[in-house]
Nucleic acid binder design. Sequence first.
DNA 1: TTAGGGTTAG
Length: 682
Amino acid sequence: MLHFRSGHISGGFRLLTSLALKTIRRYIHPPPPDLIATNNVINEHAKRGNLHLAHHMFAQMPHKNIFSWTILISGYAQRGKLEQCFLLFSQMLPHHRPNEFAYASLLSLCDHRHGLQVHGLASKTGFDAWIYVANALIAFYWKNSCSAGVEAWRVFQEMNFRNLVTYNSMIKGLGMQEQGHKAMILFVKMLSDELDFDHATLLSLISSLCAVNVGSEKAMVLLNCLLLLHCVSVKTGLNLDVGVATSLIKGYSALSGDVGACRKVFLETGVMDRDIVLWTGVMTASVERDPARVLVFFNQMRREGDFYPDCYVFTVLLKACANLVTERAAAAVHSQVVRAGFVNVVELDNALIHAYSRCGSIDNAEQVFYEMSSRDVVSWNSILKAYAVHGKAETALDFFRQMNVAPDEATFVALLSSCSHAGMVKEGTNVFDTMREKYGIVPQLDHYACMVDILGRSGRLSEAENIIRNMPMQPDSVIWSAFLGACRKHGETKAAQLASRNLQELDPDNSLGYVMISNIYCSANSFGEGDLIRKKMDKAGVRKEPGLSWTEVGHTLHEFASGGKRHPQIKAIRAYLDELLRQLKEIGYVPETSAVLFDVEEEHKEEQLYLHSEKLALVFSLMNGGDSSCNVIKIIKNIRICLDCHNFLRLTSKLLGKAIVVRDANRFHHFRDGACSCNDYW
DNA sequence: TTAGGGTTAG
């Protein structure tokens, strides 16, 4: 079928005439059967990626026709071999006029410069009006667009005839440029043009919705679009297509975080249809909210299908291990990665650095980083972030000086949080200035939050407040909670009231805005006012996150709640704890009763302190021989560690000569010989 | 023979 752009009618007509003549000639003088047979064999080899063999056969051919050349060019194009494609294309020119497939193949892998040359040549020969070439031009311009797709729109608008691929390419391109709402509008136009859509249309549309970077109001609109597209896919049966199902899973995960909806889409696919991409999609959807489920899915995938995990699967698995904070699982995945032969895969190594760091093993994270043959900005940011949360700010700053790739926004978040964890005001301020002046990176909310934390916690509250007042965007809840934390540390009740009010307004479900100010009042013995705040919080239906700790003994992760009433071994734990406390008191432990913020008698305050979840977890680990796989006792805690528990763990490490690592909500504390890596600044 | 689903720095 031929189609012409306006203004190219005469060129198109000449082309039509010449092609018609060629067709007639081919009819009168058909190519010999052996030529067709050889072309077919070369095509098979090229499609399967046996390009050496295909090229060898091509070179041996005494007579080649346009198909022989085009088949090989397409084969190289599909494997991304730009140089070979161009070489073949130019070698073909003296013998044959390139056809639309040659142009389209070439365009599919062109960079901007080469693509413009191909477009120029196609225009000269009139081939740019052919729908195959025009569609390929649309895809090319979206991929290489520097102007939000202006050129792609121009090609689209100048086409007299558009088909399914035209619309699919436009929708895909709009998605790539984060214009999902426009993709939906185009989909409606496509329907009004009475064009049928297919699985690729839905797939691109759904993906385009996830790519839009919007606030919460627009997220609702996008979620409604997703629900609509889900209905359309069910109605047409396209939800059974494995690609559509994968994009639906990603859509629900990104726009609603509804793990149940993701699982439902997954279960609707046929067991035999499931491929590794679908499995990766459903695992990724669970990795933040239900990381344990990722491991369940992984085992199910191995049982159900003949799949060998690839880099993507391993990367998601490692993220699940990081979120589960189990070094044993991370190390097991690491050994599988090595056995599967994945070496020097930068994304995988980055995920390993992150997983080891989050599981408390900075040494292993460091080792992975050292052994990488090439590192990208994520690798550097991952190790810098690791040093930040493990309290190694000097090392982070030193590594930054050695960084041989351009830093980005995340680099400076890592550096500023290093300084904030270590209380390094001068260095932090210097990093903040350098980022703007030397690297031209405009500070975002995260950077301002770090600066408020650095200045506020060091006691420079008025400077921190100035940052909040003068920042170019509206401060968010993270900024106010950093400021509120600083106010609590320095007993600044008045400033805390302001921060608390803002926090309650910006994040009404967050208990922090209530709990912190209530604690400030209680610390100042204003129990009445503290109680009032708690009542206000209850009335608003906001619940304080209960203090929980976890420790791994044997192969099981044990959970402890503050008070430990529900733990089956609580009697034995308390007996062990009493003896430990007696010995600790002998070496100078004094219960920090100011850490108990209720209006109760002193002796009851002590009693409450002793039952904090991390103390129970530590005792349980000691009673059961700790984690026998390593010499370190590791405890994970969901909220910030209190002053008394910090003292208790510091002295226990001295008394028993044991290393203890605690990860609280903010960072890691490495206790050894009576000292903590945070230098008691947290 | 053009388009078309999954990964890493919270």
